[in-house]
Design a protein around this nucleic acid. Structure first.
Lengths: 336, 336
DNA sequence: GCCAACTGCTAATGCGCTTGAGTGCACTTA
DNA sequence: TAAGTGCACTCAAGCGCATTAGCAGTTGGC
């Protein structure tokens, strides 16, 4: 900036005013300063900026899942890619961290806050008993919870949420219409808020329809558990005629397991995946799946966080309800 | 720090000395200061630290691939997870960015450099004609190239490399021993350095063995192209008896396509995936795959970057050659 | 008994930027 | 004509830390 000031023949403050679009300099000077800055390829040092109270132009994202579960799930990369797209417009950086568990994640937030490393954070995988909203409230760190339910207890946090309940209801609708009365929902991690919402909705929908043989089983999202649970429930008697998997990885694993056990899909058992991805289109039969636009989810979340950083009040916004894309893995229930 | 200084009854400089392990304070004072700092939960502001020339304790990672290709590939999340593990030990942050292409990626490096956002970067997907090493050299940004060949032209850059040539040779060995003489290698992006190394090695190995019907076809790594190429090559006459896919996603897509076309695996055609993941174990038959430890790859790269940041000279380190894990998708070639 | 060297600490400066408090000037208004 | 009012700009302080120079007090050597 000193260089720019010298070459433009003004003071450093004038340069600051000019470059930040503040009043206090004439348009002529502003243009001149801008030109010189451009010429010199100047970019403000984030460190210096941060030090004088401007924020660090960085948002944080922590992923607290065991490393090996991280592998195949297509959701997160899509989500992050969407987040980036929006952040890049304002040249905001994304500080990314993998954590062991939620406690570890909280420690990361504390550290980031103490070190002034981020202006705000994006929180994923909200849980039923979640210490994070309280912590973020306490730290005063702007945050957007991705995939949570609107949270009235933390008016400082924004929420971007998908209507899991509505989606589950529509899946049950679909399956019921095909004559399915014995349905098993192979859910994800029991502690996650959306897992619980899905389970609760399934139970409510079943009761409403008088279906008694409908249940949920929780897992860790891995292909291993997906396969194991599938083996167990299909071995029961009477076996379910429809399986709903909470992610694509388990659905595919379950499909393979069903085949191993001699179940034909969809003649003997229907399979639905709660996540659409290339994976679902790569197996035989192609998997019927709930499609949501994960990148758009990320874009929405990033936009909300930027709004928060701009001082706008927190709010809860919904993203479109995922729709069931019917493919070859769902069909009429076989008569008992 | 002012607080700490006051409570410990010393000057701010003494606090700085004490907390940074520099000489100039007695052990007693150091301990006292440390205790107070701990009590207050003090962490140095990265911004202030950076401003006084200490570096920003952050490394950058740019992923330049089209967003939709990002989805299922298991490699990157594993890699990043390994990187994190090592960086976290020193509380280094990871600034992550998705870019459109290499030109965009270069712009990101320039910006990061000008804004003093990172102390160094990790570069992935090195290319045959790659502008990045030159740029990073020019900027003087410490960097580790992941998956490149040792690069004598850029002595400032470290390289962490896998012996693709050796791995390809061992795969060809294996297939040749099973009697395969018609092999197609469904490669990844043609511009990537490792793609070219694999192609070159395959050609050399084929010549050495007098195999004339061996070739490579490049793709964009997507399941779509994997399937399309598979359809094309299996439709040729005579059809190949072995297919080597450069990633797990294409291998799985190819497997499904082969089944569609009435080819039995491995009786009619053998399939090898150059990437092992849950995906490979979820399909029927399970895919024989080259297993490498992607997380370890990341850990090694992160360690090299930290060494570079510590002022150690750049070097090239190898990671173990991936080994072929035989599963159900490879078998003896059917006699012509 | 005097200088040198060391120890344990403090004061002051600067990193690159923002910002509130001026300053000088032309121009209006009573 | 004096006072008032904007405008375009400059000055200087300060953000939180690292670092260099310096300053008492002690020890050691001769």
């Amino acid at each position: 900036m000193k260089d720019i000031a010298r070459r433009a023949g003004v003071s450093e403050s004038a340069v600051s005013f000019a470059l930040n679009g503040r009043p206090g300099v004439s348009e002529a000077t502003r243009a001149r300063v801008r030109r010189v800055a451009e010429q010199l390829g100047w970019r403000p040092s984030t460190a210096a900026r941060a030090l004088s109270g401007e924020g660090v132009a960085t948002v944080g994202f922590v992923l607290a899942r065991p490393a090996d579960t991280l592998g195949v799930d297509s959701f997160f990369l899509q989500l992050v890619s969407g987040i980036q797209e929006v952040l890049a417009e304002r040249h905001l950086g994304l500080l990314f961290q993998v954590a062991e568990d939620v406690a570890d994640e909280c420690a990361v937030y504390r550290r980031w806050w103490a070190e002034h490393r981020v202006d705000g954070v994006l929180v994923v995988d909200p849980r039923a008993e979640d210490p994070r909203p309280d912590l973020l409230d306490e730290l005063g760190l702007p945050a957007v919870v991705i995939g949570g339910a609107p949270d009235v207890r933390h008016p400082g946090l924004s929420t971007v949420w998908a209507d899991d309940a509505g989606a589950m209801a529509s899946v049950v609708d679909e399956l019921a219409a095909l004559g399915h009365r014995r349905i098993v929902h192979i859910a994800g991690l029991p502690g996650l808020a959306h897992t619980q919402r899905r389970i609760a909705t399934l139970r409510a929908e079943a009761r409403r329809r008088g279906l008694t043989e409908v249940r949920s089983v929780t897992t860790d999202y891995s292909d291993t558990e997906g396969a194991a649970v599938t083996r167990r429930v299909l071995g029961g008697s009477p076996a379910p005629t429809a399986l709903i998997y909470d992610n694509d990885v388990m659905a595919v694993a379950g499909l393979a397991t069903a085949a191993d056990l001699g179940f034909r899909v969809p003649q003997d058992v229907s399979v639905v995946s709660w996540e659409d991805s290339a994976l679902c289109r790569m197996v035989t039969p192609r998997l019927s799946a709930l499609s949501r636009d994960s990148a758009e989810f990320g874009r929405t979340a990033a936009r909300e966080l930027m709004a928060l950083l701009d001082g706008e009040p927190a709010r809860a916004v919904g993203v479109p309800v995922p729709r069931l894309t019917g493919r070859g893995s769902t069909g009429s229930a076989r008569p008992a």
